[in-house]
Design a protein around this nucleic acid. Structure first.
Lengths: 121, 121
DNA sequence: AAGGTAATTAGGTAATTGCTTAATTAATGA
DNA sequence: TCATTAATTAAGCAATTACCTAATTACCTT
C-alpha cells in the first residue's frame, strides 16, 4: 500500500521518466524555455532568438525537453512549432514531493497560500 | 503584479537558489537520499550504508543537498546527523510550477486528486 | 596520550556536458 | 529548378561531473 512510493525514485539505473524530467529541469536555459512556452507556443527560431547561444545549442535543449515529455514538437511547413505539455511536469514534481514530504500536505498548503496571496495582495 | 513570475527563472547567471535546488534534484542518488530522510533523520554513515558507492561520494552528495538548503547537518558527537528541510524543496518546486503552469491550478488539482486517491483506494 | 571510529577534504581520472562551427535535410517561392 | 530560409545532425573541444583511493580532522574510550 505504500510500496509504490519509492519505486519511482529507485528507478535509479537505466534512465527512467522521472530522471529525464529532473535532468531536463536542471538547466537554467531549459527552465527558461519552459517559462517562455508557458505564455504561448513558439517556433524553434523564435525560441532561439531569445537566447544568446547558437541555434543548434537551443535545438539540443529542445530535444532534451521533448525527450522528457515536457513539450510537444509540431512541424508546420518549414517551421517547427513547440508548445508545453503541462501534465508530465506537474505529475513528476508533485509525485516527487509527495514522496519526500509526508502525506503531500506541504505543497498543497503552499499552493493554496500562494493562490490566496495572488487574490488579495 | 506579474513581474515577479520570471525573476526566479531569469536568475540564469551566477548560480542562485533555484538553480542549486534543481541541480541537486537532477541526481538519482541525491533524490534517493531525500527519500530516505523523509522517513527519518540519519547519520552520514547510515546513509552511506544504503548505497554501493564510497563514503566520500555520498558525503559529496550530502553537501550538495545541504548547499541547496534541502537538508540540515547537525554534528552530534563524532556523528553527523542529517535531516530534511521540506520548506525549500516545496517552495522552489511549487514556485516553478506556478511560473510554468498557468495560475498554479494544475498542481493543486493534482495534489488533491492524489490525496483523494490515497484516502479511498 | 594512544588507538579506533566517523566523517570530510584532497588529489586524480574517465566519462559527460554544453557549447561551438560546418554540413545536411527539408520546405518555400522566384 | 535553383536559391533561400528553418531546423537538425555531425564533429570536435574545453570545462565539469561523479566517482575512486589516500590523507586528514575530530571525537570518543581506555
Amino acid at each position: 500500500m505504500e510500496d509504490e512510493t519509492f519505486d519511482d525514485i529507485t528507478e535509479d539505473s537505466s534512465v527512467g521518466p522521472a530522471q529525464r524530467v529532473f535532468h531536463a529541469l536542471s538547466s537554467a536555459p531549459r527552465r527558461k524555455i519552459l517559462a517562455y512556452l508557458s505564455a504561448s507556443g513558439l517556433t524553434a527560431g523564435e525560441i532561439a532568438d531569445r537566447f544568446s547561444m547558437s541555434k543548434p545549442a537551443v535545438s539540443q535543449h529542445l530535444s532534451i525537453l521533448e525527450a522528457a515529455g515536457l513539450l510537444r514538437r509540431e512541424k508546420q511547413g518549414q517551421f517547427v512549432h513547440y508548445s508545453l505539455i503541462e501534465n508530465n511536469l506537474v505529475n513528476t514534481l508533485n509525485g516527487f514531493v509527495q514522496e519526500v514530504c509526508p502525506v503531500g500536505r506541504p505543497i498543497k498548503k503552499e499552493s493554496q497560500a500562494r493562490a490566496r496571496r495572488k487574490e488579495s495582495p
